[in-house]
Design a protein around this nucleic acid. Sequence first.
DNA 1: ATTTTTGCAAATCATTTGCATATAT
DNA 2: ATATATGCAAATGATTTGCAAAAAT
Lengths: 139, 139
Amino acid sequence: MTTSQPLVDALARAGYRLTEPRRVVAELVVARSGHFTANDLIADAGEQDLGVGRATIFRALDLFTELEVLERIDLPTGDHAYVPCLPQHHHHHIVCDGCGRVTEVEDLGIGDAITEIEGNTHRLELFGRCPRCQKAPAE
Amino acid sequence: MTTSQPLVDALARAGYRLTEPRRVVAELVVARSGHFTANDLIADAGEQDLGVGRATIFRALDLFTELEVLERIDLPTGDHAYVPCLPQHHHHHIVCDGCGRVTEVEDLGIGDAITEIEGNTHRLELFGRCPRCQKAPAE
DNA sequence: ATTTTTGCAAATCATTTGCATATAT
DNA sequence: ATATATGCAAATGATTTGCAAAAAT
């Protein structure tokens, strides 16, 4: 409720209306504390009987992405996932092929390599396998 | 007709049947000499009145991807594109955000950085902006 | 008051599947 | 002959859109 501030703030800052459905989506995002798909949220909203429509969820996610408080990631499966992120801090995520967990690139000690690539590119999507999944070679 | 050999060969090598529709798809892939989507090929096939069904094209693309003579790339738009590639040679592609053209990463002189990352990851998708599009900041 | 946002249901679009027929081996 | 592959049309699944009603400014 209070942790969804950054998302909600972004709306306010950009002059968008602060509506109940948008608050709800912000809550759901925070509750997931990690990556998720639009459908995950739609399911969450449905289960909890929050009266938020499919379309509204998609629209809110688009909006948050535009405001750079969410980042959209294209999973190798073709699914689209979203990750919450701080807009001010330049960074990249790496998505685990095994479990889908998202890590920041700096945490892996490969930040310099990324920076070098960044000199040449705008956008990176990284997929790997997190320590947990490297042990248990799940698929 | 002769340049589609690598694709067709891969089928033979792996023991798949050498069918007309698969030959046609191989031709279409080669004719594109670059990245393309499934729908591009479906359109191509339709225009040229080759009697190849949608489903068959998807199936052939899947097959070629499995055989590693094609690589499937997830564009930032969410579209899926395919790029022909030589299976033996370990590499990555970089997709231009502007025009969609695909370049091999070595060509950009950032191969070392990639290699470093590779130590930690399985799969990379890179998006950037090719020289042509850097000049003309198209969207 | 006015403009933005919503929710719904219908529309779209890519991709997949079932199944009877055709083809490669 | 027999197993594999095809084509069609129908199914699926994610995302988008039109539009009248509701909520935020």
